[in-house]
Structures are given as C-alpha cells and as structure tokens.
Design a protein around this nucleic acid. Sequence first.
DNA 1: CATGAATGAGTCTTCATTCAT
DNA 2: GATGAATGAAGACTCATTCAT
Lengths: 198, 198, 198, 198
Amino acid sequence: MKRQQILDAAYTVFSRKGYHRATVDEIIALADTGKGTVYNYFVNKEQLFYTLIKERSARFEAELINIAGLVEPPLGKIKKAIKVFLEFYVENADLWRVLMHEMRGLGHEEPSNFTEAQREKYRARFQHTTSILEQILQEGIDQGVLRICDVHKAAHGLFSVIVMMVFQGFIGEKGESIETSANGIADIFLYGVVARQD
Amino acid sequence: MKRQQILDAAYTVFSRKGYHRATVDEIIALADTGKGTVYNYFVNKEQLFYTLIKERSARFEAELINIAGLVEPPLGKIKKAIKVFLEFYVENADLWRVLMHEMRGLGHEEPSNFTEAQREKYRARFQHTTSILEQILQEGIDQGVLRICDVHKAAHGLFSVIVMMVFQGFIGEKGESIETSANGIADIFLYGVVARQD
Amino acid sequence: MKRQQILDAAYTVFSRKGYHRATVDEIIALADTGKGTVYNYFVNKEQLFYTLIKERSARFEAELINIAGLVEPPLGKIKKAIKVFLEFYVENADLWRVLMHEMRGLGHEEPSNFTEAQREKYRARFQHTTSILEQILQEGIDQGVLRICDVHKAAHGLFSVIVMMVFQGFIGEKGESIETSANGIADIFLYGVVARQD
Amino acid sequence: MKRQQILDAAYTVFSRKGYHRATVDEIIALADTGKGTVYNYFVNKEQLFYTLIKERSARFEAELINIAGLVEPPLGKIKKAIKVFLEFYVENADLWRVLMHEMRGLGHEEPSNFTEAQREKYRARFQHTTSILEQILQEGIDQGVLRICDVHKAAHGLFSVIVMMVFQGFIGEKGESIETSANGIADIFLYGVVARQD
DNA sequence: CATGAATGAGTCTTCATTCAT
DNA sequence: GATGAATGAAGACTCATTCAT
C-alpha cells in the first residue's frame, strides 16, 4: 500500500519536475511516508523512476499487441494504433518527456543519470512499440494497400509525429477529442498533403 | 575572446551532459579560464545557456526566412526548408534536445530551471520557425498545389517528424546523406503512404 | 536456538566488517531470522556485540586461571600461558581487533559507540587476563628464577607482543605452528636479544 | 591557511572519534570553515584522513632514518630508536590507533573504509619504519653485540611492545618521563627477564 | 578584466530501532 | 516468541555563486 502511494507520488513529482529536480523529500511528503520506506521498496531514485515507467507502459503495450493481432483491414488497424498511442502519450506526456530526455545520449560520453544497462532495457521497450507499428505497416504493404516504402523509417516517422505533437501540447490540452486528432494525423500520414488531381 | 572560449566550451559541455549535469567547473576547465570570468560575462548558468541558444539559432532562422522569400514552386520550397531544418538539427541535436527538455512544463507549477520569462522568449523563437513553415504550406494551398488542411497542425507535424527523427538518431549518424533523408521525409509528407490507384 | 544463530552470525559479521560497518540486516540474513528477533534477545547492537565478547572469552579465562594454578616451574608456566594466549588471539583475532578499537578513548570526551559503563566492564576483563600473567611472573621473581623488574609493565609488554604479532599477521597465517611461535616469543622475552658472553 | 585549519581540526576529531564517528560537520565547526572548503582541498573524507597521516609521519620517518645512519654502537642506536618511536607514538597515539584499526583486514572481504590501494600505500609506510629497526638490529648482530635471531620478527616484536604500551596508556600519561620508559623497554628487550647467574 | 578560494544550501542514501500482527 | 514494514535522524558530498585581490 505504501509502495503504491510512493509510486503515485513519484509519478506526480517526476512529471512535474523532471528527474533531477524531483527530490525524494518531495515524493515522501506527497506520499505521506517516511524516507526509509522508499528505500525499502526501491533501491534507488533511479530504480524508482524505472519501476514507474515499467508499470505504466505494460498495459499500453498489451493493448498495442492486441490491435496488431486483430483481423481487420490495415488502414483500420493503423487508425486504431494511432489512437492508442495518442491516448497513452496524452495520459503520460510529462513522465515520458522526462524519460526520453534521460534516455538520450546514444553513444555519448556521459549521457544521463542512468546506468547504460538500464537505458538499454528501456530503449528495447521503445523499439518494441515501434516494431509493432512496423508490423502493421508491413501488413498493409503486403496486401497492396500501402505503397512500398521503408517501413522502419515510416513507423518512426509516425511515432515521432504522435509523440511530438503531444509533447508540444497540440493534442490533449485543447477541446478537440483524441479521436479527432487521431483521424487528422492518420489522414496526413496516409494521404499526404499534396492535392489530388481527381 | 574569453567570452567566445566560454561559449564554445559551454556548447560542448551542455550538449554532452545536459543542463543539470553540466558544471561550471567543467566548462571553465575546457575554456581554460577562471571561474569568476564566467560571471563577468554571464549573470547565470541559465543565462549562459540561453545566450548559447540565441547565438546558435540566429543563422538558421535567417536561412529559413530567406527560403520562404524565394520565388519558386511551393514543393521546391518545402523540400528546401526540410533540408535546412535537417541540417540545423543534425548539427545541434544534442543542445536542442537539452533545450527542449528544459522548456517543458507548459503551465506547470514549477517547471524547470528557467525563469518563466526566459522560457517564453524561447518558445516564441520556436513558434517563429514553425510559423515560417506554415507560411510556405499556406502558399502551396493558395496556389492549389496542396490540399486544404490545418496548416498549423501540418507544419507542426512536419517539424515534429524532422526533429524527432534527428533526435532518435535516424538521421545524421548513418551513411545516408541529409539530402536523401530530406527527400524521404518530403515524399511521405507530401504524398502519404497509401498506394495510388494509378 | 535462534539466539545462538544470531550470535554466530554476529561473530562472523562483526569480525569481517568491524562494529560500524556490520549491519543488523547482514546479521539476520546470515542467521536466517527476522529483524525483530534480534531485539527480543538483545537490547542493542551494542549489547549483542558485548554478549559475543563475554561468551567467547569465558573459556579462555578459565584456561588461563587453570595454568596459573598448576604446580610447575615458572618458566614452564610462562611458556604455557603464552601458548594459550596465542591460541585464543589467533582464533579470535578479527573480533578482538574490533573490540580493542571500540574500547579506545580512555577518558576522552566522546569515546566510542559504547556506554562508558560497558567499556569499563570489558576493560576489567582485559586487566584480569594480564593480572594472571603478572601473578605468574611474580611467582618467578619470588622463586629467584626471574630478575626483579616491574611485573605490571613486563606483563603488559608480553601481552602486547603477543596480541600485536597476531594482529599484524605474524602468527597464525603462515605455516609455522603456534607452538613454535610461542617458543620464539618466550625465548626473546626471557633471555633478551643481547648476545651472552658464555 | 584554511587547509591547515582543516587538517588541525581533522586531527583532533579523528583522534577523538575514530574514522567513522568523525563527521565532516564537526571538523568544519572546529576549523571554522565552510563544508565546501574541505572538498576543495581534499577529495574525500578518506583522503583527508590520509593526508593527515602522511604529513604527520614525515618528520618521524626522517628522524628514524637519521638515527640509523649515525656512527655509534648498536645498543645506543637501539635505545635512541626506541625513544624516537615512543615520542612519536605518544604524541600521535589516538590518530595512529585509528589508522591501525582501519588498516586491518589483511585479505579479508570488506575490511575497512579504505580503498585497497590506499591501504597498501600506508602498509608500505609501516613496513618502512620497522625495516629501519630491522636494519639497526642486523647491524648489532653483524657486530656480534646481539645474538642471532629472526630480525624481522624481533623488530616487529619491539615495535609491537612500544606501540601497544603507548596505546594501553602505560606510557605518556603518567608522570614517568619518556626517557625512563624507553630505557625500561630497552632493558627487557635487550636482556630479557630471566635472572643472570652472574 | 581575470581570478579562484570560500561558501552552504540542497541531495541522496544508510541503518538502528520500534511496534502491530 | 517471531516477524518485517515503517521510520527518520544523521552523514557524505556537489556545485552555483560571491567577492577580495
């Protein structure tokens, strides 16, 4: 129970302050617990943060896998996937912004506060979600619905747009529903911005 | 002269370490100067960082404005703009990653290390570059080359893809030239991923 | 039963880590017991430590008293006593090293982790063993076998050599038997290092 | 100047409290300085401690080497060396007690607060002083003044007696002069406790 | 202008001890 | 008796900033 209180408080504080500026003191104040308790459940500030990430992303990943497995036209799958992505990132925008920042430094000297091992684990997690996107796109190509392109890049491009738009506050903070936003993104992604001759 | 040495060193250190982990000590070691000297030229670690941002982005913005002013078909302008964006962000990927992280916290309680005033100034700077993109897109719509859509969103979507792909390391680290990458992005952005019937 | 498990584990951990670095957590892990159990049997980490000392030294003291009581020439007694000392300190070198360190601070402001009362009890225990040595030496003087000297100092000197040589690793870790070591020490103690004219 | 204040304060606090219980806070309170200042001059609590040891022992070692080099009968040298040892250890009894405790753990798992590298450096320092004693004893044997024995052991035995007697408070705290104490030790060490027939 | 010694507020982390079950 | 979750006081260390020279 205390464990959950701490996780909830940590979620709030990390989201608000980022990793560095988040202090254990503030977390325990919010969790209404003692400082030692944090270290009974988590070895580190770092490991607390990652536990948070892991637990939050589990459900999202499951949902995504589920969509990929549906028997349905690819375009429908793509739209659904975009919606699930949007929902997740809107919900967890702040924390994932922090995560992405701390995960940066691909190959750089002293890149973040995290162990290289830890970073690798979570980079894998990211790869996983985009690889599901790739799979869906590939399916579309195989069925002749999508034109041939580099699915790896296309999936990342799509992922980028989604994440970036959420982070930039274009989605989720205004009145517009996520459904509508998802459709807008899908529209441009699928058909481009060039006017059709027909 | 000392001022420039400090800025150069700061660029390197902030890029490598991020804002928090960058220490004034490391900067002066690299700049081969005394600690007090930093505070003669810059009021703050914060203000040093932003001076860096300001000076680095000036040339980029000028170039972008220049492209917007060219007399040329919109599609060509778009491709050129994408290339300029890519070049700039590949060059300054690390520092801008840091900047974007520190600029987060839109409207939140205690948002970052920066003054709200400072943050506002640089948000404006971002808006400025995307607004040039918007302008180019709008021109395309007016000339009937692009289909009608929300230019604000489209511009941000494009911006997002560019920035995110650089940050994710998709561009600039592999053998592929920036020219090629720019074309690939432009292709999907303009024509979408859906297969044409023709 | 639990009590003994805890004592055994405590012996190991205190010996290995010293008093401060020994943690209750490590002791209970080794003792395979719960943390509360320790505090059922011992009021304190401190009192746990001293219980250890007390129980370990009881047999040694008994043996020493026994030797003092033998009817035998003084030189033989001295050799036997040296051997018993060596055996005990070799066996318990690590723990006694720790004890001696914690017992320091004779008369100082804030001397150690221990209550002054506790320290006094164990200083008395030390005095006790050396006083038995004194007694044996005095017997030798009374019988004209040893030359007249300050028995108090001489006993402490002998004690010092024994303990220090064990602590320095001169005895007990090499191939040499304790018997041989004991004879070597006795030889110099009894006859000095100066060459005889005869 | 601050550096010296810190060293002086550290000497006092480490001597009084031992390594673990000595806190940086207490040291700076005594040194009348800021906490950061300590870390400007010393990388560590550990390194502060060892700087202390190094600076304190330098003069002592020089004096000892000097004695070894004198042209004088060996017995005189031995007496002089004992006196120098006594003086040094009486002066620095408390700090060296602490050092010896922290240096323990020859080959043990996790023996002290110090790096193995650091410990090795100071073990060497100890070896150095006793090796000078050995040298003096060997000279005595070579000149036929001392009987043949294991000089290594004998030197350590002598060293042990000296150190231990100081640590036990036998020397330096009572009215007796160091001169007298030195003679007493030398007497037993040289001639033993056995009564002469002559 | 340039310098760098001095500073102390702010952090994470450890660990003996308690107490309700 | 046995247990272990909860606790918080205490401690080492970092680093931006100041100011006298």
